[in-house]
Write a protein that binds this DNA or RNA. Structure first.
Lengths: 154, 154
DNA sequence: AAACTTGGTTTCAAATTAAAACCACGTTAG
DNA sequence: CTAACGTGGTTTTAATTTGAAACCAAGTTT
């Protein structure tokens, strides 16, 4: 899980994150964490994956600073897994994934769970990419630029 | 790659998409496609992955309707791989991944590539989740709701 | 003290991934 | 015409990962 440093030595801004969460289960674990699950057993029951795999994934997430272990909140002698700030930073990604799923993986009238504003119970807005000045941007309206070589930055 | 139907029979709005793009390489291929790459060889050179794996991934992406093959645009007798509408729908997710990467995978002053508005060359805005009425929402301000059972929807 | 629960680790078979060799087709060079 | 070459793969084979199931340890309940 660690040695995917591609031929280009330093990994780019997309590849680096993927190294931390780029497998099937990790994002599902994180989603469950956002839904309030904290205990090993809860994750396992919710996801139905083998315990050794869950164990490895949680260890990996903790190693990457995405989750953290804390002593159990109730009296029990076990630990719980909670999202760090870094982990919570994945919320928009999860929303993007969900919205894409809604758009393309469900029949027009197929029912599916919805993410709603807790206060109003209304569905959240669609994520949209905007320019600095607020214009909406499509993929074609953007470019990737590489940073100027060191020494040339003011 | 197909048989991950978890214990719960029908997969949720997060798991379904992950079945299509939930591996390390697929998203990198898609990002390269957004960057304008189209040919087998271009992807392989850019990503440095084994040809059989690239072949399998492209086949999978095409099978999921995320990419499509078209006859080569120049005269060459080969085909090219282009993003479908569904594939282009992944742009926000890619932006989310990139922004998260920038936030947590680079040192404060470490240079990294940036996504900018093609027109102004200014960095794009941060993706933000907003309520129906435009309020910004944090993860804790949202809930997942399940659709009402069939027959109870007006 | 026997059984049970929780949270794992170990073992081992099966599936996936990766590297490398091979191959087919069309183009270019001699 | 034929040999070498570039592109876009497939096949073969070995290494790595995954997953199911068994096992285990510590603490709790009966």
């Amino acid at each position: 899980m660690a040695k995917r440093v591609s031929h280009k030595d330093s990994m780019c801004g997309v590849a680096r994150p993927l190294d931390a969460i780029g497998d099937w289960w990790s994002l599902l674990i994180i989603r469950d964490a956002f839904d309030g699950l904290r205990r090993f057993g809860e994750f396992q029951k919710s996801l139905g994956l083998a315990k050794n795999i869950l164990s490895a994934r949680l260890r990996n997430l903790v190693a990457h600073g995405i989750m953290d272990t804390v002593p159990a909140s109730d009296g029990s002698p076990y630990q719980e897994y909670v999202l760090t700030q870094k982990g919570q930073g994945l919320f928009p990604l999860l929303v993007a994934l969900r919205q894409w799923g809604e758009d393309f993986f469900f029949e027009p009238n197929e029912p599916h769970v919805t993410l709603v504003d807790r206060a109003t119970k209304l569905p959240v807005r669609r994520l949209e990419l905007r320019a600095h000045d607020g214009r909406m941007l499509m993929a074609e309206d953007t470019v990737i630029i590489v940073p100027p070589p060191v020494g040339e930055r003011e």
